[in-house]
Design a protein around this nucleic acid. Structure first.
Lengths: 193, 193
DNA sequence: CGAAAAACTTGGTGTCACTCCAAATTTTGG
DNA sequence: CCAAAATTTGGAGTGACACCAAGTTTTTCG
């Protein structure tokens, strides 16, 4: 990687970091792209060179997230059902305290930004749909219905975690409750896929 | 209702009709609000007086749609489970050839507009979420997880209908296939709510 | 009926995300 | 060191939408 790519990486993170800081301070909708550009010492055009939309300043590189359910199904052991695989992956992340779960301290601030912005909420819905699409492709049946239901359960569990965190419940209690919900839901859904 | 309200109604439908015509002809994203205003002989400001956003020109009065699942649950007979109630309501609409199903001729043109516009697809996702929210409130358990799963199934069934219609399958065949899918899915899900 | 009040429409002005283009500027490979 | 390639930038535009201060129309009430 030459000097050029190093600089690009630096510029990109400088922009994203400036953006996050501003969003945390003022909220997504009260920050303009021009402000972000100024804070990062670049032009507005450069911001759009790196990030196709303003929302991408916060939701950057979501490929991994979008493909998570599909990957869980794809990588499952022979004989394991898709729903069981997704369940197992979810519980694994729960035990491992995966940062994307929103259970770790600091997550609240992030999701607060999202919850207060219609544009970001729309983006979350889009990511959810992309997740569903990817899952449908990974299912041996290719069933959109099964994919929709499994993705809905996964999404609802994540949402429930955030809701409880916001409500101030302690992490261990949340983990226990969510674990029970997940096991119950996915075992029911299992008959679909 | 006085003269004023009659005029208002006339203006509103004139705007919506002009908009639909233009959207059908050119696609949502290739029509500006200014064009719609001109076609309806009003000012741009007046368009926004009646419709809060450009998307509302197409998705007007979606309250009914958003509350459909909640109403099915709310109005169910004693002893019927929520999932069963939603299933029954869905099958009823299928038999009755409800226009919002997308099975009737002309529906393709409408959904083509939607499918080609990112903004309208985002709006559909929002309506889906509102549907889910309303359903959660209507469930005796209030379970967001159950609501999410039921709403996902309902949404997926609608999407599947549209997909098959687009693919050119005959309506009776679609109805039969969807009926089977719905019965299977909701009976499985039944154990959740 | 007639005039003030209330409701509606309009023009104007401004903001902000985002696009397109052409002119710098920087980096790299030869 | 120089020319090609990549990057950054300024500038001009577009379109949705907010806000406000005039009109204009409809209603209300004396």
């Amino acid at each position: 990687m030459g000097l050029r790519d190093e600089k690009k990486q630096a510029t990109r993170t400088a922009i994203a970091d400036s953006a996050l800081e501003l969003f945390l301070a003022k909220g997504f909708d009260r920050v303009t792209v021009a402000e972000v550009a100024r804070a990062a010492n670049v032009s507005v055009n450069t911001v759009f060179n790196y990030f196709p939309t303003k929302e991408d300043l916060l939701f950057d590189r979501q490929d991994e997230v979008v493909r998570r359910l599909a990957r869980a199904v794809h990588d499952r052991a022979g004989g394991e059902s898709p729903a069981a695989a997704v369940c197992r992956a979810f519980l694994g992340r729960l035990d491992r305290d995966d940062p994307t779960l929103g259970l770790r301290p600091g997550a609240e601030r992030f999701w607060r930004i999202v919850d207060e912005s219609p544009a970001l909420l729309a983006r979350v819905r889009m990511l959810r749909e992309l997740t569903e699409d990817a899952l449908a492709e990974a299912l041996p049946s290719g069933s959109r219905l099964a994919a929709a239901v499994i993705a809905a359960a996964d999404h609802a569990l994540h949402a429930e975690i955030r809701r409880r965190v916001t409500r101030g419940e302690p992490a261990p209690a949340i983990r226990a409750a969510i674990r029970a919900d997940a096991e119950r839901a996915f075992s029911v859904i299992d008959a679909l896929a």
